[in-house]
């Protein structure tokens, strides 16, 4: 995938950091924390870009609770934050605060708010 692209290139750290900061600000991570309704919207609309609005899969796999039951919550948390190198799963760390990622992991694993 592009974020961890297979071809070598020198990394421009200052550029990356400033872009990450810009993304975080744009997402509101530095502003008011999103409430449950906004996070649910985020999961279905934005994770849903690849995993489907109903989370049953698309370009990315099914991420409904049953499909995730083999996951340790800590591992799932890291997968979401760090992405999966070599696949289309991007790292969401720049866009999510700690309480937000906790809420999302719990929501995905239980299927409940």
């Amino acid at each position: 995938m592009k974020f961890c692209k297979p071809w070598p290139s020198p990394v421009n750290r200052p550029l990356v950091l400033s872009l990450v900061a810009a993304l975080a600000t744009g997402a509101g991570a530095a502003e008011t924390p999103r409430d449950a309704e906004a996070l649910k919207h985020f999961v279905h609309q934005d994770c849903g870009s690849c995993h489907g609005l109903s989370l049953k899969g698309g370009l990315g796999p099914d991420i409904r609770a049953k499909a995730l039951e083999h996951y340790d919550p800590e591992v799932l948390r890291e997968v979401i934050l760090g992405g999966i190198p070599g696949t289309a799963m991007p790292p969401w760390r720049p866009l999510l605060t700690d309480p937000e990622i906790d809420w999302i992991v719990d929501y995905l694993m239980t299927g409940e708010e």
Partner: peptide, 15 residues
Amino acid sequence: DGYSAGREGLPVYKM
């Protein structure tokens, strides 16, 4: 070919 050579790829949150 090589349109992003020498540059870090940014996360792609939507295709």
